[in-house]
């Protein structure tokens, strides 16, 4: 197997507060292979954006990486000096933020922001940087790129600005692009174009993408694999088709069931997961999801699950651990819902 571009192992992100340390990301591990698009989904506050910020080294103080390690192409990057980390940001990891309207400095011309980024990372002449900026703008589909170089951000529409932001994030060919909800602030018709552009331009360069979003439609269309987060912990990670069609973690399963379908009966009530995600600092003992989970049994309330193989995916759920003493009734219901439980007890078999 080729070495992953990004490898996150047992990542812990903490926020020291007056009332004690809050753990926002707890023991999170995942890999991104070269050229792969990994979708990261979860509710607001599940830790999606924080994971991105931790990888690129831009956690807002007092937040800090308190444990685990982050490797970029094998090289450990979570303990680099701020100055070393700065040379990795932009050059090897690019980042795209949610709101293109506020991502660009309103007082600087587009061309200047591009050439500034290029010149920071590449030892080329100002002239060559400008030519490169022009090619980038053309590549992301800005019409009349030559004249638009000297335009200010406010002279662009939202969609066009996000194209400029993509050009900026990919200006010096990073290996990995972290896109933090790149389309949330755009209207639906533009979203598809931007996602297609992002996918194409990253594929052209062989860059891997970590796509953070809560739009499952975007994930299904774009991602190769998807990682579901819940309360700062991994719930499930696996190939996108498997996670979307055959989710193995009860939370992922609930999440997928809550997606409205165009083909479905419009009068039918949308499925929802009862309750809401716990606040940091009030995360229950055992599995973080156990109070809301329809399949929870004794072990879920006392022990924290590791990630177990579950079909083609990995799920952090005791339903998939052969060592669980699974109550037959729970196993039966889970199997009915399409969850491939580790060991179906004899009594529940048909």
């Amino acid at each position: 197997m080729t070495e992953p571009v990004l490898s996150v192992r047992n990542l812990i992100v903490e926020f020291p507060t007056r009332r004690g340390v809050l753990r926002a990301i707890d023991d999170l591990s995942f890999d991104i292979a070269p050229g792969e698009v990994l979708g990261v989904v979860g509710e607001s506050g599940a830790g999606k954006s924080l994971t991105g910020a931790a990888i690129i080294g831009l956690l807002e103080p007092p937040g800090r990486v308190a444990g685990g390690e982050i490797r970029l192409a094998g090289e450990r990057i979570d303990n680099l000096s701020p100055e070393r980390m700065r040379t990795i940001r932009g050059k090897r990891i690019g980042m795209i933020f949610q709101d293109p309207l506020t991502s660009l400095n309103p007082l600087y011309r587009i061309g200047d922001q591009l050439t500034e980024t290029i010149l920071t990372h590449e030892p080329i002449s100002a002239r060559a940087a400008r030519d490169k900026a022009l090619r980038l703008l053309e590549e992301v589909g800005i019409p009349a790129a030559e004249t638009r170089l000297s335009a200010y951000p406010h002279q662009f529409s939202g969609g066009m600005r996000q194209r400029v932001v993509i050009a900026l994030a990919l200006a010096v060919d990073p290996q990995l692009v972290i896109a933090d909800e790149p389309t949330t602030a755009l209207d639906v018709s533009v979203q598809a174009q931007i996602i297609a552009l992002l996918k194409r331009i990253c594929a052209d360069r062989g860059a891997s993408v970590m796509l953070i979003t809560h739009d499952m439609g975007v994930i299904a269309e774009t991602a190769d694999r998807v990682c579901v987060l819940y309360a700062g912990r991994l719930a499930e990670i696996g190939p996108v088709r498997d996670v979307v069609k055959r989710p193995q973690h009860p939370y992922a399963s609930g999440l997928m069931a809550a997606i409205p379908s165009l083909a479905g009966d419009p009068d039918e009530k949308l499925a929802q997961i009862p309750g809401s995600m716990p606040r940091l600092g009030a995360i229950p003992r055992g599995c973080a999801f156990n109070p809301r989970c329809g399949y929870a049994f004794d072990r879920c309330r006392t022990e924290r699950p590791d990630a177990y193989p579950a079909g083609a995916s990995q799920a952090a759920c005791f339903l998939h651990d052969a060592a669980s003493a699974l109550p037959p009734e729970v196993a039966g219901r889970a199997a009915e819902a399409g969850i491939q439980v580790a060991r179906v007890p004899a009594e529940a078999r048909p």
């Binding site: 700065r86 932009g90 933020f97 309103p106």
Partner: peptide
């Protein structure tokens, strides 16, 4: 605290360029 400063950091610009170029001008 603004997004464009965050984005400037994410692009790896030097602190000098961020503080005295982007931030000061705004």
């Amino acid at each position: 605290r603004s997004d464009y400063i965050k984005f400037a950091r994410a692009r790896g610009l030097s602190n000098r360029a961020i503080h005295f170029g982007h931030a000061l001008k705004n």
